[in-house]
């Protein structure tokens, strides 16, 4: 029984990482209206930038992480404007955009391989003391991750509901034509979306790297489709549904290890995805009733 509670605790951590990453992806997806397969690569970048900053610049991990994720936001903005929007301007259909982002993911893979090489790395946190919180067993760093995730999700919620930018993002996500007609500066809002969601991806990557102890350049690639699963389960462009989806999937992944061999962890996410798609192709948002 203890194992169950511990796995549930892990589930919350994974859910946290997943939630931050997937909210970024779903907001991005909702606004640009195509799937950005290289999103996972932004996560990888967050981890590697942080590693470089802590190791070469000897910065404290929090500062390093913050700078790194801002860096990722900038890279995301660059790629969005310099590459993706060129194809959008040409009127490329959705399937072509998917291939473009797929190709970009491959390109980034090659660049990462040249820049950082294949050997795995670790992000050292120095906060591995175990803490008992009720029936759960966490390390301090895991609690940090949960706390950070919760904080960012709340921040995102505030941005989406209280700021003009957030409202513009939601409008564009719901109905692009109408948004344009009502005078929303879609270009500038899209730029902001690239920045913010890139930042979130970076945070997701750092948090993931911390959680799994050792990572390599395939970090984001491997995790991307789990993030995508959470997005689809929650409903594309629906941040609150996605948070629920992330919670569902994150917890399921970890708790399932009590009954299924751990190698199939990520596949549990895909199984949930397939089942949800069969049952409710729009995602679970309709059930929760949230936008």
């Amino acid at each position: 029984m203890i194992a169950f509670w511990h796995s549930l605790g892990f589930g919350l951590v994974t859910a946290g990482v997943l939630a931050v990453s997937s909210v970024g992806l779903t907001v991005q997806f909702g606004v640009i209206n195509y799937a950005n397969i290289s999103y996972g690569q932004y996560m990888t970048l967050g981890a590697y930038f942080t590693w470089d900053l802590t190791n070469y610049a000897h910065l404290n991990i929090w500062i390093a992480g913050l700078l790194a994720c801002i860096g990722v936001g900038l890279v995301s903005l660059f790629i969005g404007k310099a590459i993706f929007s060129q194809f959008v301007k040409r009127g490329s259909p959705g399937s072509h955009m998917l291939l473009v982002t797929f190709a970009t993911a491959l390109l980034l893979s090659a660049i990462y391989s040249v820049a950082w090489g294949p050997s795995p790395r670790q992000l050292d946190i120095h906060a591995l003391n175990a803490l008992h919180v009720g029936p759960f067993l966490f390390t301090a760093v895991q609690l940090y991750v949960i706390g950070l995730s919760a904080g960012l999700l709340i921040a995102m919620h505030l941005v989406l509901t209280r700021t003009r930018l957030g409202k513009a993002m939601r409008a564009m996500s719901d109905n692009m034509t109408l948004a344009r007609l009502t005078g929303i500066p879609t270009g500038r809002v899209t730029d902001a979306v690239w920045l913010i969601t890139g930042f979130l991806a970076g945070v997701g990557g750092v948090a993931l790297a911390i959680e799994i102890a050792s990572f390599d350049i395939n970090l984001g690639l491997n995790f991307f489709f789990v993030v995508m699963a959470a997005v689809v389960v929650g409903g594309i462009g629906k941040p609150y549904g996605t948070m629920v989806g992330a919670l569902l999937i994150g917890v399921s992944i970890e708790v399932s290890t009590n009954v299924i061999p751990a190698q199939y962890k990520l596949d549990v996410a895909f199984l949930i995805l397939i089942l949800i798609l069969l049952w409710k192709p729009q995602g679970i948002s309709r059930i929760t009733g949230k936008v």
Partner: peptide, 14 residues
């Protein structure tokens, strides 16, 4: 396309 891509990848991964 997006739904299809993710489902197909899911099948592949599993």
């Amino acid at each position: 396309s997006d739904y299809l891509a993710i489902v197909l990848f899911a099948v592949w991964s599993i």
